[in-house]
Every structure is written in structure tokens, then in C-alpha cells.
């Protein structure tokens, strides 16, 4: 596999709507090829990473991500993740990862009960992940959010475990990096904006790095996440081992 060109799979559920944006970001920003993976596939082709994009899978008429987790492709993604494959879930992708049990916790509706689309600031609290290697510890990134259910919740024991194992990667924060209630846009527990699994190879986050990766769109902070992922893929291919944090 190390000789084959690098490739990232972008899942497509009925109702995904950031699939094309992620495809564009992989090819234009990361400079490697992207392949759409239809949700009815029960096997993944050889891939270096999987992105579960944002959108409204199955319309999100039920709890967000609750139906998508039953798509055949999610069983394949679970096997891929269990074997150390890199999985990035953005927004609805994060919600699907929670529903699929690949990440702990659940999403509640935003505190305001409204959809919120705007730039927020997040602090990088763990740079030792395959998705944040290019960030500096405590670095503040400006990234856009666009969701109605981004109010992360989990039980106290799981929260303690997440913190103890450094799985909280992004927290909503003020411009100076302070994590304050005012800087929390959706009421998320402990201002959590993104977490990994215990192994570190699966990341879910609510902000959209693919929307903030080009100077023409006015913000490039999202590149740090995409290029960190690219570094991990490149490193992993040279070491021919699954990439771990």
C-alpha cells in the first residue's frame, strides 16, 4: 500500500452536504486524491484516512447521526478505526461517530435552541494527535461552526476519563485562549469542541476546518488540521505502521 498514491475516503450519506467541500479540501489543500464512499458500501477500498463530512444525514429528522450509524459503511469504518486507521468526523460526522460509539458522549441541541453559523475560537489542548501536529500547544484557532446540535454532553466519569487521557483536543475559548462561558457558543460541556478516542486515531470536532483553509475565503486556520493529517499519513506510509498519537 505504501507505493499506491495516497487517498482519503469521504463518506456520502443521503443528506451529507459537506462531502464535496471535504473532497475539494483534500485535493486542493492537502494535494492528495479523495474518493467518495457511498453509504451502502460494506467494504472500504484501500485508504489512508476516512473523513465523515458534515450535513444532515437522513435529514437529521431523528437525533442527529442516529440513522447514519446503521448504514453498511459504518461497520466498515468501525473496522478501519479499530485497526488504527485515521478517521476525522466533522460536525454531522462528529455526531455520527458519537452515535456509532467510536467516540464517547452525545450531542444535545444548542443552548440557544437555534442553528448557529459563525466563526468561533478554539484552543488546541492536545497537539500530540495525528490531526494537530502542526499546532502549538494552547494555540487559538479561528474556525467556523454551523450546527443546531453541538452541545456536547457526557457523564462525569467519562468526562474525567477524557481529560485524564488528554482526549479533549479542542475547547471553545476567547481570543486570548481563556476558556470562558461567554466564549462557549452552544453550551457544550467543559466547552468541548472536539475529542479523540482513547487510541487517538479518531477525531470528532464541531468546527469546519475545510471551510477555513483558503486565503480567498478569509481564513486559513483550518489548514493546520488538514496538513497535520497529511503529515500523519505521510509519516504512517513511510513507517508502514498505523499512526498513533
Amino acid at each position: 500500500m505504501a507505493d499506491a498514491p495516497s487517498r482519503i475516503g469521504v463518506l456520502v450519506f443521503p443528506g451529507s452536504n459537506c462531502d464535496r467541500d471535504c473532497h475539494h479540501a483534500v485535493e486542493q489543500i492537502m494535494g492528495i486524491s479523495a474518493a467518495f464512499i457511498w453509504h451502502k458500501e460494506s467494504e472500504l477500498p484501500p485508504l489512508d484516512a476516512v473523513i465523515i463530512p458534515g450535513g444532515f444525514s437522513y435529514g437529521d429528522y431523528l437525533r442527529t447521526g442516529a440513522i447514519a450509524r446503521f448504514s453498511p459503511v459504518m461497520a466498515a469504518v468501525t473496522r478501519f478505526a479499530e485497526s488504527g486507521g485515521l478517521v476525522l468526523g466533522i460536525c454531522n460526522g462528529f455526531q455520527i461517530l458519537l452515535e456509532a460509539g467510536l467516540l464517547p458522549g452525545a450531542m444535545l441541541r444548542n443552548r440557544s435552541l437555534s442553528f448557529i453559523c459563525r466563526d468561533v475560537r478554539v484552543r488546541v489542548d492536545n497537539t500530540a494527535t495525528p490531526f494537530t501536529g502542526r499546532c502549538k500547544p494552547g494555540q487559538v484557532l479561528t474556525l467556523p461552526i454551523a450546527h443546531a446540535e453541538g452541545n456536547y454532553y457526557t457523564d462525569p466519569a467519562t468526562l474525567a476519563s477524557l481529560k485524564a487521557k488528554n482526549q479533549v483536543v479542542f475547547r471553545y475559548c476567547a481570543a486570548d485562549g481563556q476558556v470562558t462561558p461567554e466564549a462557549n457558543p452552544n453550551g457544550s460541556l467543559d466547552s468541548i469542541a472536539g475529542i479523540t478516542n482513547a487510541a487517538g486515531n479518531v477525531l470528532g470536532l464541531m468546527p469546519h476546518p475545510e471551510r477555513s483553509a483558503e486565503a480567498l475565503l478569509g481564513n486559513e486556520d483550518g489548514r493546520l488540521i488538514l496538513l497535520s493529517l497529511l503529515d500523519s499519513i505521510t509519516r504512517g506510509r513511510f513507517s508502514s505502521k498505523p499512526v498513533m498519537a
Binding site: 452536504n17 459537506c18 464535496r20 467541500d21 475539494h24 479540501a25 458534515g54 437555534s114 442553528f115 448557529i116 453559523c117 459563525r118 467556523p144 454551523a146 469546519h208 475545510e210 471551510r211 483558503e214 480567498l216 475565503l217 478569509g218
Partner: peptide, 17 residues
């Protein structure tokens, strides 16, 4: 009109300059 357009996803498709 932030109260209005923050409820709209105005960035999806990554074209909004």
C-alpha cells in the same frame, strides 16, 4: 442582521468570500 443570518448556514460549499 446577525440574529438572522447566524441561523443560516452561509458558508457551506466553501465559496463564500
Amino acid at each position: 442582521k446577525g440574529w438572522v443570518f447566524e441561523q443560516y448556514d452561509h458558508m457551506v460549499q466553501t465559496n463564500t468570500m
